[in-house]
C-alpha cells in the first residue's frame, strides 16, 4: 500500500486539510447551531453522537424541530431501544406526525445495534435515533458506514460514554444544562474546525 492510497482512505483524517463537506446539512431548526456546523446543519448520511451525563436537560427537545420537519415526508422516524416510551401527546404537540414514528425495542443489546444498522442502511428512515447501551468503536464504525450507505441521518444518544473515547461519528456534541437553555459543546465535527460552545434557548414547553 503506498502512502497515497493510504491517504485516500475515508477513515484517515488529516488535520491540515479539511475534507470537503458533501452536500448541505440538515437544518437543526436553531440558527445559532446551524451557524457553527459545517454544511449549516446536521450532517446528512452520517452519524451524530450526542453525549450527556444527565437526563431531562433538553436532549430530545433539541431534536424536535428536525423531527417535526422530517416527519412530513413519507419515511420513518425510527427510535431504536429508547430508554422509555416516547410520550405521544408531547410528540404530537411538537407537530411530529405520529404515523411516521417507528419504535423498535429489542430485548438483546446486540439486536439493538443490528436494528440500528438495518434502519440506517435501508434508506427508508428519514432519521434514526438510537440509544445503544454499550457500543465499541467497531460497532460505531459499522453504523457510520450504514448511515453513509442509506444516506440517513443517525443520532446516537449516550448517557455514559465519555467524551475521551475515539469515535468515527461525523459530529459529536456534548450537552450541558445552562441557565438560558442548553449549552452545546462541539467535540468533533468532520469537515471543519471545532467551534466554541453554543447556547440554545429551548422552548420551555417540550
Amino acid at each position: 500500500m503506498t502512502l497515497d492510497t493510504l491517504l485516500q482512505r475515508r477513515d484517515i483524517w488529516r488535520g491540515g486539510r479539511l475534507s470537503p463537506v458533501t452536500g448541505g446539512g440538515l437544518s437543526t431548526g436553531f440558527p445559532e447551531l446551524d451557524a457553527v456546523l459545517p454544511g449549516g446543519g446536521w450532517p446528512r448520511g452520517a452519524l451524530t453522537e450526542i453525549l450527556t451525563t444527565q437526563e431531562g436537560i433538553g436532549e430530545l427537545r433539541l431534536m424536535l424541530p428536525t423531527l417535526a420537519r422530517l416527519s412530513r415526508g413519507d419515511r420513518w422516524i425510527a427510535w431504536i431501544a429508547p430508554p422509555r416510551l416516547p410520550y405521544a401527546p408531547a410528540l404530537a404537540a411538537a407537530e411530529i406526525d405520529l404515523s411516521r414514528v417507528l419504535l423498535v425495542c429489542p430485548r438483546a443489546q446486540t439486536d439493538a445495534l443490528w436494528a440500528t444498522e438495518q434502519a440506517l442502511r435501508s434508506g427508508t428512515c428519514a432519521t434514526v435515533l438510537a440509544w445503544p447501551r454499550q457500543s465499541n468503536d467497531r460497532a460505531l464504525r459499522r453504523l457510520q458506514l450504514a448511515a453513509e450507505a442509506g444516506k440517513t441521518c443517525g443520532f446516537l444518544f449516550h448517557y455514559t460514554r465519555g467524551a475521551g473515547t475515539p469515535s468515527p461519528a461525523a459530529l459529536r456534541l456534548r450537552l450541558e444544562p445552562n441557565i438560558q437553555g442548553l449549552l452545546v459543546h462541539i467535540l468533533k465535527c468532520r469537515g471543519s474546525f471545532v467551534a466554541g460552545p453554543v447556547v440554545l434557548t429551548l422552548s420551555r414547553s417540550p
Partner: peptide
Amino acid sequence: NQLLLERLRARLGDDAVRGVCL
C-alpha cells in the same frame, strides 16, 4: 418502508416493532 418493518420483525418479533398514537 414495509420491507424494513418486515426485516426488523422477522428477527426481533412483532412486539418489538411498534408505533405510538394518542
